[in-house]
C-alpha cells in the first residue's frame, strides 16, 4: 500500500476500534488509537505473512507485548483477512473468539497469548536469534507500550538483543506518555529513553508516530542496520483521532458509551449505525 492507502486504512481501523469497543462495553481505547498508524503500516506494508495460512513457517513475526491493545490488533487482523470483520462485534464476549487480552488458541493471527506486560520483547529475541543463526530472512517486530518499559524483563531482553546484535529484530515503542495512573514521567520516569536504549546497544530512531511517511522510512532504515537491533520510538498521542480522547490518560482502559461513540465516529466521518452495519456485513 502507498501512503494514501495506508492513511485510508488507518481511518478504517480507528472506526473499527471505536465501534467494537462500544459493543464490548469495556476495553482499551487510548493505546489502541495511539498505535493505529504504525500498526497499519506493519500489517499492510511491512509484514511478510499469509492471512490464509497464519502458521506459515517462513512468516515474519509480529508481537504485541502491550497485549491490551487488542482493538487495534484485532481490527488489523480482520481487515487483513485473518477472520470476518463481523467477529469484531463479539469482542470480549463469551460467544466470540476475541478475548479481552489476546489468546493464540482462540484467534488466528495471534502469535502468542499475552496480557501480562513486559514479556513480548523476549519472545521476539527467541525468534530473532534462531532466524539469525540459521540465516533465515525472517524479521521480527515487537510493539511495546511505553508504560511497560517499567517492567525489568524488558531490559533483560534489551540486553540480550544488543549482546547478540539481533539486527533482524525491530521494536516499536508507543510513546504516548500515558499509563493507567497518569503521565509516565510522573508515575515512573522513563526519560532519558533514547540514551537508555542506546546504552543497551540498540539503534534508536525517533519519529512522529502518526506520520505514515516517517513510519515507512523508519522501518526501511531498520532493515539496513547490520550490527544492532533497532527500536523506533514512535511519539504518539493517546486517543489519537478523537478530539475528546486525545492525551487523556483516563481513556487507557475505558470504552466509549453510546453518545461518546457517536461523537467519536462522527469525527472519524461515519456513524455508529453505519459502521456497525459495515462490520456486521463483512
Amino acid at each position: 500500500m502507498n501512503v494514501e492507502d495506508l492513511q485510508k486504512m488507518a481511518l478504517i481501523i480507528r472506526r473499527n476500534i471505536i465501534t467494537m469497543l462500544f459493543h464490548a462495553g469495556s476495553g482499551h481505547t487510548g493505546g489502541s488509537l495511539s498505535c493505529t498508524d504504525f500498526a497499519t503500516v506493519l500489517m499492510f506494508r511491512e509484514l511478510i505473512h499469509n492471512p490464509k495460512n497464519p502458521k506459515w513457517i517462513d512468516r515474519d513475526i509480529l508481537l504485541y507485548s502491550n497485549g491490551h491493545v487488542t482493538p487495534v490488533n484485532y481490527s488489523c487482523l480482520a481487515e487483513a483477512g485473518y477472520f470476518p470483520k463481523k467477529d469484531l462485534l463479539q469482542f470480549r464476549k463469551l460467544s466470540g473468539h476475541l478475548q479481552g487480552h489476546p489468546s493464540c488458541h482462540d484467534t488466528p493471527g495471534i502469535e502468542v497469548s499475552s496480557g501480562s506486560l513486559g514479556q513480548g520483547l523476549s519472545i521476539g529475541c527467541g525468534v530473532a536469534i534462531a532466524s539469525k543463526r540459521e540465516q533465515h530472512r525472517r524479521r521480527t517486530y515487537v510493539v511495546l507500550g511505553d508504560g511497560e518499559l517499567q517492567e525489568g524483563m524488558i531490559w533483560e531482553a534489551a540486553m540480550f538483543a544488543g549482546h547478540y546484535q539481533l539486527n533482524n529484530l525491530c521494536a516499536i515503542v508507543d510513546r504516548n506518555r500515558k499509563q493507567i495512573d497518569g503521565d509516565t514521567e510522573e508515575v515512573m520516569a522513563l526519560e532519558p529513553l533514547v540514551e537508555k536504549w542506546q546504552s543497551f546497544r540498540w539503534h534508536v530512531i525517533t519519529i512522529d508516530g502518526h506520520n505514515i511517511s516517517e513510519i515507512n522510512n523508519a522501518f526501511q532504515t531498520a532493515k539496513n542496520v547490520n550490527d544492532k537491533p533497532t527500536v523506533i520510538i514512535a511519539k504518539t498521542v493517546m486517543g489519537k483521532g478523537v478530539s475528546f480522547m486525545e492525551n487523556d490518560y483516563k481513556w487507557h482502559g475505558v470504552a466509549p458509551k453510546r453518545d461518546q461513540a457517536e461523537k467519536a465516529l462522527a469525527e472519524l466521518g461515519t456513524s455508529l449505525d453505519e459502521w456497525t452495519n459495515y462490520l456486521a456485513s463483512h
Binding site: I57, I61, E111, V112, Q119, G120, S122, I123, G124, C125, G126, V127, A128, I129, A130, S131, R138, T140, G152, M153, E156, A157, F160
Partner: peptide, 13 residues
Amino acid sequence: QNMCNVAAGLALI
C-alpha cells in the same frame, strides 16, 4: 524471565 520467553520465541518458529 528472559530465558523462558526466548525459549517461547524459539518454540514459536
